[in-house]
């Protein structure tokens, strides 16, 4: 080592040896500088007061995003047209179409429907759970499509699903004791203890007042949007107080008509999605 030249630098007796770097490495370094300058000229690089230099190539990540989105839209155009021109059963029978429609429907559901029905479509009190097998207005593809498209009790839409249950308590049709008895009958229908009153009296009142819409055994009637009363699913609560409140003065859910807002293709995709959640008929 003693024969090797030093740079002349010395710190506390430690001398810096001069081991020359190969010149090609120096050129490589200069080349990277040149590349950097070229890059700054070609691409957006230098921040200015209100913006930045645009670069000679005119590149922008926003424009690239738009291009990508346009490309994606282009790629989807054909399959979306096929969905638009096919009926629901055909879409469901075609694996590719169904997969696309369900994915598209899921995305649309999160934007337009999850506010009331929840992101997992489980609903809450007054907003039906779409995963189960209990359908107020019907769970076939056509029925779901009609419900989404025209809405429920949407005054602005003539085709909207519409029904109204009388306010048996508030309008004085039934006495408070009668309501308790009817509720007792409903509890018995579902296999529960009729704790609120006399189920036998209740069944007579039920036959007079309720059976027309809700059916003899409480099986409900979908044409009228009259829910089944003998099952385990209660839209406004299954405890006796909630049932009595609903008989006294019923709440009625409203859903806007989506057909005109979203267009039929999106509604079709939503239909496929809702139908795929596990309860579709």
């Amino acid at each position: 080592m003693s024969e090797q030249e030093t740079t002349g630098h010395e710190w506390d007796g430690i001398r810096e040896l001069n081991t020359p770097l190969p010149r090609w490495w120096l050129w490589t370094f200069y080349l990277t500088i040149l590349w950097g300058i070229g890059y700054c000229i070609a691409y957006p690089a230098i921040p200015l007061v209100t913006g930045n230099t645009a670069g000679l190539l005119g590149y922008s990540s926003r424009a690239e995003l738009e291009q990508t989105m346009a490309m994606v839209a282009d790629e989807r155009r054909e399959i979306i047209e096929r969905i638009a021109s096919s009926d629901l059963a055909t879409i469901r029978g075609d694996e590719e179409l169904a997969q696309f429609a369900i994915a598209g429907g899921a995305a649309a559901f999160r934007v337009h429907c999850s506010q009331c029905h929840g992101s997992g479509a489980v609903g809450s009190v007054g907003y039906p759970n779409l995963n189960d097998d209990d359908w107020i207005w019907g769970g076939s593809l056509e029925e779901i499509h009609q419900t989404i498209s025209a809405g429920v009790r949407d005054e602005a839409n003539d085709d909207s699903r519409f029904s109204e249950m009388p306010a048996f308590g508030a309008d004085g049709i039934l006495e408070a004791a009668d309501i308790r008895d009817v509720t007792a009958h409903l509890l018995a229908l579902g296999g529960r203890e009729p704790v609120t009153g006399d189920a036998n009296f209740g069944s007579e009142i039920y036959a007079e007042q309720c059976e027309v819409c809700h059916g003899e055994g409480g099986e409900g009637m979908r044409d009228l949007g009259a829910p089944a009363l003998a099952d385990a699913i209660w839209l406004y609560g299954s405890d006796p107080d909630s049932i009595m409140a609903q008989v006294r003065q019923p709440s009625h859910g409203v859903m806007p008509a989506w057909g005109a807002r979203l267009g039929d293709t999106v509604v079709k995709q939503l239909t496929l999605y809702v139908h795929s959640l596990g309860g579709g008929e």
Binding site: G120, N129, D132, A232
Partner: peptide, 9 residues
């Protein structure tokens, strides 16, 4: 989501 679903029966 959902973790479980109650069916009508």
């Amino acid at each position: 989501n959902p973790l479980f679903v109650r069916l009508s029966d």
